[in-house]
Every structure is written in structure tokens, then in C-alpha cells.
Design a binder for these strands. Sequence first.
DNA 1: CCCTTGACTATCT
DNA 2: GAGATAGCCAAGG
Length: 115
Amino acid sequence: MRYRQAEFDAAVWEVVSRIRPGRVLSYGAVARAAGYPRHARMVGRSLGRSPQPLPWHRVVRADRTLAFAPGSTAYLRQKRQLEAENVRIEGGRAVAAADDGPLDLDRLLWGPDGA
DNA sequence: CCCTTGACTATCT
DNA sequence: GAGATAGCCAAGG
């Protein structure tokens, strides 16, 4: 799929807005779900451009570490918001705790049961 | 153009 | 499992 900023942004925001509380998704997974498999690096940029609030804190790296420098304001804010929905940060890695019902993107979403 | 910089990843050591 | 490496790709200088 050819890259177009407006469409890419919209697709990314759509996917991220659907991640449910207590779950996290990787940048690469978001990119794939949005239809742009090679654009993991562009996801963060889009999130920063979002005109309205998004649960962006549920997006982490593929290895489950947060994308911000540990100790930075952004890092702390993301960590706090994740912990607020029962996602722990152990050894720098985000670990989902409780699980709920079904979700379309289940295969791309990280839950308590792992991949 | 060329080069650098990222809210990235997969694959080796 | 932590580093290093090599792809990745849009933006900006």
C-alpha cells in the first residue's frame, strides 16, 4: 500500500483507538493492522500528530519496553497510565495482567496469555 | 542529492 | 538476554 500521510494517520489512529484497556500493541503490529507493514517507525510520529486524545500509552516496542527514555516525562506518564489499567512494568517490560472478552485484532494484541 | 534522525524490528553473537 | 548490525522509510537540513 502506497504511503499517504493523511490516510496513514487516520488508519493508525483508528487501530490505536480500538486497543482495549489492559492490553498493549507494538508499533509494528499497529502498522500492520493499519495496512502499512513496513511503517512501524512512522506510527509514533502519527500518534504525536493526533488531533484528539488516543490511548497511545498502549503502544509499546516489540520487546515490550516503552519507546521513551526511562525517567523522561513521557516515559513516566505512559508507565503511570498503563499501571492505572493494571498493566505492570517489570524489568522495563510491559506485562498485561487481566483479560476480558474477545477482540477482533486478538492475534495482534498482547494479552495476559502471551502472543 | 546526500546525510542524519527517529515513539521500530528481526536476526546474529 | 544484552549488544551490535542491518534493514526499514519518511522528514528535514
